[in-house]
Write a protein that binds this DNA or RNA. Structure first.
Lengths: 279, 279
DNA sequence: CGTCCACTTGACAATCGTCAATAGCAGTGG
DNA sequence: CCACTGCTATTGACGATTGTCAAGTGGACG
């Protein structure tokens, strides 16, 4: 099978452009070309490892950040009753673009990469999910993008229909979901500005500042910004190549705006970065 | 004042980049530099010309497309009671980025351009509003972008607070608004792929196919695609310059994929365009 | 009729992508 | 323990897509 995959890549490469040549792209291209979007062995393994434990909301670390925040005690109970927890190891695929979406969920720990794939292997990362973020706001019957775990993750998930029925009966909960969707829409529009009208250096700066601000909501503000994703992921989020991401990070480090550390970066010159990223 | 404006442009040009040099950008840059986001004379004139007539929903052309579609008769009455109509001529500014947002509204006729402006004059168009689309889904107290009329437009508008209270009492209406927000979010994510990972030619093709699909929801499918916006607007939507937009349109016309007509384009080779635009 | 603006086209430049080589690191298995 | 493998990141040389600058056409409108 490995031979087949490489054959496909080679054929596609002759025909046009292939930007990503790692195993992810091979798999994705393979799936796309053959129209085979069945669950990967990895996904199956993870699903089996996620037995669906009942929720334990009382010691949920992020309940103040998520949709659960705005609920009355009785609503909270009902939500808790229809939810289950699940865990996935790093690199697991939670769901794939184009497949059925039986669940919506809430990320409680870890980080996800959400990406859309073009038929020729080009990829656009549409977002990174952090604790407190909601998955499935679009409430669509199929997934619009693929979600992969960047770290070990924990989610609490709800059947889409059950959740949909519950929010129809609980306006407060629907309002919380709608507000979350509005926030996502605003973020997406800001990202459109970054993608369409910013230089490579500005893109990196606004990405780092954006990550810092998102972590600040969770852990409090810090100059230490963990980056669980690879340079390739960052490039695919910002519409750049790995090489350009690497060069710009090196440049910012050389100019003493950041320091590159093993698990991310430290921001040395926040005002300069904010100037580069200014909205 | 014209002298001052040109002076500012010149200064900014020396300092950095100015991509847009038409009157819109002059005004925007002027506003940004001086922090003067008061209503322009043009906006004031329009507001005066929009006396707020009571709604006449029974002969609304787009009621089947908008949030009104999903309402029961009693809900419909309540919505009609808190709404007013308003009209603006082409080129009017309905509202500006950063200003208070006392109203949300529903576009009933015409087309709008929604744009975000960077401090140095670069602009990103985040969307075009067509009849049936809703303005103010984010329900934020201030506007996140500027809305300008591309043609004469009619809207029906509601006070943001009144509308917010009404949807809290009418789950069906809130659901309609939430679905609209979800659709917008999906569109924004698709546009992120276009902005981040597509070539100039593909961007134009996907823009034309996208516009055709949106008109199809309103008028039915047709190879005639009106383009009420300028090449500059299209460029600012796709992250391109006017010149590149013009060149790509010319190329597609030379290759007989489209014909450029006075008010837009006609699509000759839809399969080829869809191939270029394929999601 | 003249002005303004949108659009087009050409020549040239620059940013960013492509290709290639290398280093570092973690995991694996002899 | 250490060679081996595979992946991520970095860096350099080169090239191509797209942006920049400039000039000119044509239509709308006063």
């Amino acid at each position: 099978m490995s031979g087949i995959k490489f054959g496909m890549i080679a054929a596609a490469k002759r025909a046009g452009r292939i930007y990503i040549l790692d195993s992810l792209a091979e798999k994705a291209l393979f799936d796309t070309v053959f129209g085979r979007l069945e669950a990967s062995p990895r996904t199956m393994a993870c699903a089996q490892k996620a037995p669906g434990l009942a929720l334990e909301c009382h010691d949920c670390e992020i309940k103040g950040l998520s949709i659960c925040d705005a609920l009355e005690p009785d609503e909270f109970d009902q939500l808790e009753r229809i939810g289950r927890t699940a865990s996935y190891p790093a690199k697991a695929t939670l769901f794939e673009q184009g497949r059925d979406a039986p669940f919506v969920s809430n990320l409680t720990s870890g980080a996800l990469r959400l990406s859309k794939l073009l038929p020729d292997g080009r990829r656009q990362v549409v977002g990174f999910t952090l604790p407190g973020d909601f998955l499935g706001l679009a409430m669509q019957p199929t997934h619009m993008y693929t979600a992969d775990a960047l770290t070990p993750v924990k989610i609490c998930q709800f059947s889409r229909h059950g959740f949909s029925d519950l929010i129809d009966r609980k306006p407060r909960l629907m309002r919380a979901v709608m507000n979350m969707a509005s926030r996502e829409l605003t973020l997406a529009q800001d990202q459109m500005v970054v993608l369409g009208r910013r230089t490579a250096e500005e893109k990196i700066a606004s990405f780092l500042i954006g990550m810092r601000n998102r972590y600040a909501r969770i852990h409090g503000s810090s100059v230490h910004v963990p980056l669980p994703m690879t340079r390739l992921d960052i490039g695919d989020f910002l519409g750049l190549t790995v090489e350009t991401v690497s060069r710009m990070m090196t440049r910012l480090a050389r100019e003493k705006a950041i320091v590159i550390v093993p698990d991310g970066v430290r921001l040395l010159d926040v005002p300069r970065l904010e100037l580069l990223a200014e909205m």
